[in-house]
């Protein structure tokens, strides 16, 4: 079994000291290790943003795709080879700013993919502009007097889009996040995990201290994760108390089950293709 330390590359980690991404990186490696996955069967597909640099730091097959496009790339990987464990890393910007339609679509289609959203409520890499998950009142470089749009609540959007596993965790609680990622990977179908990730440089509101005072675990709050209504109610909770844990889980036909894929697509025998019967139809 691969140890978390073996999943390290030789690249120098470039996150700011204290960045929430360290917690997510650690939890991700823990999850791969604790589940005993073969590292060559793990594909991490990221978008572009601070989180995207993680493609340089995990010694598995990694992709840093385009901003807003990790989801369709990952869907393609999974269709080509269903044996792979495909994990999407995406920021709040490239989940809900650029390419929001992919988010809704992958939830509807229930691809067997784990989707981890690094939700720091700010654009970090472009040095501090408002993200779609920010309150309308949030003052940033690009929104000096706030913005008319209300915030997107990722968990809520995932629920109404048809996700079959919806969770939230916190970069400041690596143990909890590790367990949630493990559950997500084991879930058959799309698993969406919204990760509260403090940005120590540009978001002075949603800090470690902010979250440490507010988060509480759904696992200990007698939440019924089979009920969509209860999940939606919990999704609205934000303020003095912020729930983390699994909001919702159901078993529904997955994307590859719909297409009745038994073997990976890439293993099909191309040398046996004979189109002469179809050519006859054209005569």
């Amino acid at each position: 079994m691969v140890k978390p330390a073996d999943l390290k590359t030789d690249e120098v980690i470039t996150f700011c000291p204290g960045c929430g991404n360290y917690g997510i990186l650690a939890a991700l490696k823990n999850a791969v290790s604790e589940l005993g996955l073969r590292e060559e069967d793990v594909v991490i597909v990221s978008g572009v943003g601070c989180h995207g640099h993680m493609a340089n730091f995990v010694r598995v097959y990694t992709v840093q795709s385009l901003h807003g496009r990790p989801v369709p790339f990952a869907m393609g990987v999974k269709i080509a080879n269903k044996k792979l464990h495909v994990i999407v890393l995406s920021g709040d910007g490239d989940s809900f700013g650029e390419g929001l339609n992919h988010f809704i679509n992958v939830m509807r289609g229930n691809s067997n993919i784990t989707y981890i959203c690094h939700d720091n409520i700010i654009y970090g890499l472009t040095t501090g502009q408002r993200s779609p998950t920010a309150d309308k009142s949030m003052i940033t470089k690009s929104t000096p007097f706030g913005a008319p749009e209300i915030r997107i609540i990722p968990v809520k959007l995932a629920l109404v889009s048809g996700a079959t596993f919806v969770a939230r965790s916190y970069a400041g609680d690596i143990r909890h996040l590790t367990d949630i990622i493990k559950q997500g990977i084991k879930h058959e179908g799309i698993s969406f995990i919204d990760v509260l990730q403090p940005c120590v440089t540009f978001n002075k509101i949603n800090t470690f201290d902010f979250y440490n005072k507010r988060v509480y675990k759904l696992e200990k709050a007698r939440h019924n994760k089979k009920s969509l209504a209860s999940a939606l109610k919990k999704a609205e909770e934000w303020g003095d108390k912020i729930p983390i844990g699994v909001f919702y889980q159901e078993r529904r036909e997955t994307f590859d089950e719909f297409f009745k894929q038994k073997q990976p697509l890439i293993s099909r025998n191309r040398s046996k293709i004979d189109v002469s019967k179809t050519l006859e139809e054209h005569k």
């Binding site: 594909v43 597909v45 992709v63 795709s65 385009l66 496009r69 989801v71 369709p72 790339f73 990952a74 869907m75 393609g76 990987v77 269709i79 080509a80 080879n81 792979l84 390419g99 339609n101 992919h102 679509n105 297409f259 697509l265 890439i266 099909r268 191309r270 293709i273 189109v275 179809t278």
Partner: peptide, 30 residues
């Protein structure tokens, strides 16, 4: 179904091209 490959009408062109690139990366002739 007859030739056992994958084909799909997807949600838009940007999704289409990124899916195809992902599939090709993983070894499919896309």
């Amino acid at each position: 179904k007859e030739y056992k490959f994958f084909a799909k009408h997807v949600c838009d062109e940007i999704e289409a091209v990124n899916m195809a690139l992902g599939a090709s990366y993983a070894g499919a002739r896309a």
